[in-house]
Structures are given as structure tokens and as C-alpha cells.
Write a protein that binds this DNA or RNA. Structure first.
Lengths: 215, 215
DNA sequence: CTTAAATTGACCACATTGGTCAACTCATAT
DNA sequence: ATATGAGTTGACCAATGTGGTCAATTTAAG
């Protein structure tokens, strides 16, 4: 299945995938329009259905594709030996932001799949959702050294705080990053700026919650 | 204008407003359906257009209405004398969550108006957006006492952190709160639980960034 | 009983939907 | 050169939904 599609040049595949991700990120499954997708990807109606057979198949293909991309990126680039949770979060942040460079709306799409209610795809999503969930929070944060925290620090609260700060900084830069996907230089500069700011905040938090750091 | 609508019993007004807010929160302006609104609000097509004249007028009425509700709630319930930023945020959080009780999708709707791109309403939104922006961050956080922070604390970073933690906790409870709007008892219990949790985190942060608090 | 406002919902012309398919292009093999 | 078959096109389809209208009906008040 999808063989014809997979025989295309990778660039063309990416173009179609990104157009579809975009449409399904803005709209929910039912209101997303295949016509918009083909218009944006500059392909014909017929060929889209030749590639994917149906709207539903296209959607499920995207979900599997994007899930795989995300998991692979984490598995291949995350240092699972790193005991410092700040450095772990720094890595995750960088991996995510660099995925946006190639797949602008990957995480918007994933967010949408969580809340998708259309009966046409809901059960299929539930089935494979497990894959993503199992592989994420359990393993991604295994081996963190909680002894790095000051002894009378509530580490659960500290970790939540770190996550929320990370998300806050990401969101602050996301829009700018997205509007600079075509300008690789500007994108990388923004990314670096974002990572620097994250580091500033991480230093700030480390001073507060880690031991062996002076005030 | 809207006089016929304003002559309705307040309950019926609320029902229509909430149905419309809901539809415009889920969909963008163009894809939001007046048919869905009248179905949900259990009124006829004709009367909606008798009340508001057009889809555009309805949308702009909602925007003004919701903006006013929000600003009024802040102005009447926020203690502008309170110098402790944690208590300020606690108040804001409570005001927001209690507004959700009456207008389930108020903030989803507001969020959507920020990113609305339809040419039909964009310019009008821009014009009145100023109202909301001016009245918010400038005045809402005026008079905060920054001397409460430990002297070698970067107060900007601390404030950002507090805001992100507040948002994180709100989001953690928002979905549950929304699914309990009809059960006033459960709603209030959840709200209290949320405020308690926020307080826990605020205590946690206070210990870290305020002076005169022991570790 | 009259009158006028409130309300209904069938109806309009039009746009868009997911999907089909006959026709066409074009690279490759013989 | 020619034949073959996969790749590709876009006009077309029935179905559904759109914002908006309006003649007809209900309701309330004098």
C-alpha cells in the first residue's frame, strides 16, 4: 500500500505531506478539505486518491508517519544516559524545534489528533495512540537523578515547573520560527536564540532547586 | 441595534450567546455555521437574523460582549492594591475560572479571535483589539512590589515562571471544569481543588524567590 | 377584535464536499 | 518505431451545507 506514493521523489512526498498536515492542523478531520490539500501541494485530485485511496487512509497514513518521525527523532538523538533533567529537557526542546523546520505543523497536527472526535477515524487513532504514549514519558525521563535537587525541594513540583517553563519559551518562539521556515539562516538564528533563552531560564531554575549552586 | 435581542429574558440571551461562542470557538469565522448555532440554541433561523442582521454582526457583537464581560470582571473583582504578585495571579486565575462557569468557551473564543484571518472580520477585530490589550497587562500588574523578591533573583524570570505555572495548572483543570459546568457542586469542588493546587505551587515558588521565607 | 411585533421554517442560489473515471502523457522495453 | 502500462489530469457527480430571505403563523397587548 502507498507504494506509488513512496516511489515519488522524497521532496515531492514532503510537499504533499506538509500540505496535508497543514490542512488537518487547521481544521478537524471532517472539515479538512482534500481540495485544499491538492491545491496547496499542486497535484491533481485523481493522483491523491491514487496514492492514498481515501481521505481516511491519507489521514491515518499521516498519523503513523508523523508518530514514527517523532519517535525516531527522540530515540536517535536523545541521550538516555543524561541524569540532569534540565539537559534532558534542553535536548527534547531542540529535537522538537528542529522537527518543525522540516514538518512545520507536526505538533499542531499531533495536538489535533488528541482531540479529534470524528467517528470516521477516532477508533483507529485510539488503537495506535498507545504506541506514542508508551514510548514517551516513561522512557524519555527514565534515569533522571533526583539527588541533584536540593534535599527539601519538592521534586515533582520542580519538574512540573521546568516543563511549564520549557513549554512557555517554546511557544514564545514557535510562531516566529514557523514564519521563517523558508529562510534557513534566520530560522537557525532564532532557534539558537530560543535555546539560549531556555538556558538562561534553566540556569535561573537550577540555582533555585539544585544543590551545590550558590545563590 | 440588537434591541430585540436585549429585550429577551437574560437566560435565553445567555443560551444563544453560549451556543454562538461554542461554534465560533471550535471553528473559524468562515467555517462556523449559523445553522449549528440555531440548532444548539433551539431557535429559528429567521429570528437569529432578526436579532443580529448577519453572521458578521453576530460575531462582532460576541466579541464586544465577551471583552466587556472580561474587563468588567477584572475591574470589579481584582484588588489593585495587592502588592504580592502571587496573590494577584491567584485572583486572576479565580476570576477566569469562574467566568468559565457562566461562559464555557469565553477564553477559547478570545484565543480564536487573536488568530482569526477571515477578511470579513479581521480589520474590525484589529480596531477593537486595542481596548482589551491596553486594559490588561499594564493596569492588571501595576503596583506590584518587586522588593518582595530575594535581592539576587531575576524578577522578570521569576514573573514569567509564575505565569507559566499558573497557566499550566489552569490547563490541567480546564477540561475537567468544562465537563462539569452543569454540576455546580462538582464544578465548585474542582475549582477549589485547582486553587489549592495553585496555592501549593505558589508556596513552593515563594520559598524559592521571596525573601524572609526559610528553606 | 385589531394590530403589530416576534417567531417560524421552507426555500433560494450558490459553493464545496469526497470520490470517480475516461482521457491523456510519457518513460521504458521490445 | 511501436506497444504497453503506470502515472497523472481535471471535468464531473450526487450529496450536503452555506448565509440569507420572506410569506405565513403565533403571540401578546390594547
Amino acid at each position: 500500500m502507498y507504494q506509488t506514493f513512496l516511489n515519488l521523489e522524497v521532496e515531492k512526498q514532503h510537499k504533499i505531506i506538509n500540505s496535508a498536515l497543514k490542512e488537518f492542523s487547521i481544521n478537524n478531520y471532517d472539515t479538512a478539505s482534500t481540495n485544499k490539500i491538492i491545491k496547496d501541494a499542486k497535484i491533481s485530485k485523481g493522483i491523491l486518491y491514487h496514492y492514498f485511496g481515501s481521505k481516511k487512509n491519507l489521514y491515518l497514513y499521516l498519523y503513523e508517519y508523523v508518530t514514527t518521525i517523532f519517535i525516531d527523532a527522540i530515540n536517535s538523538r536523545l541521550d538516555f544516559e543524561e541524569p540532569d533533567i534540565f539537559k534532558r529537557y534542553e535536548q527534547i526542546m531542540k529535537i522538537k524545534l528542529e522537527l518543525i523546520k522540516q514538518y512545520h505543523t507536526l505538533f499542531d497536527f499531533l495536538k489535533k489528533t488528541y482531540i479529534e472526535t470524528s467517528l470516521e477515524v477516532r477508533s483507529e487513532l485510539d488503537q495506535s495512540n498507545l504506541t506514542l504514549q508508551n514510548s514517551s514519558y516513561e522512557s524519555v525521563f527514565a534515569g533522571i537523578d533526583y539527588d541533584l535537587f536540593h534535599k527539601n525541594i519538592d521534586s515533582k513540583k520542580a519538574i512540573d515547573t521546568i516543563r511549564w517553563v520549557t513549554d512557555g519559551i517554546s511557544h514564545r518562539y514557535e510562531e516566529q520560527l514557523k514564519s521563517n521556515i523558508d529562510n534557513s539562516e534566520a530560522f537557525n538564528q532564532l532557534l539558537e536564540q530560543c535555546m539560549e533563552e531556555a538556558n538562561d531560564y534553566f540556569q535561573f531554575l537550577k540555582q533555585l532547586v539544585y544543590k551545590n549552586t550558590k545563590r
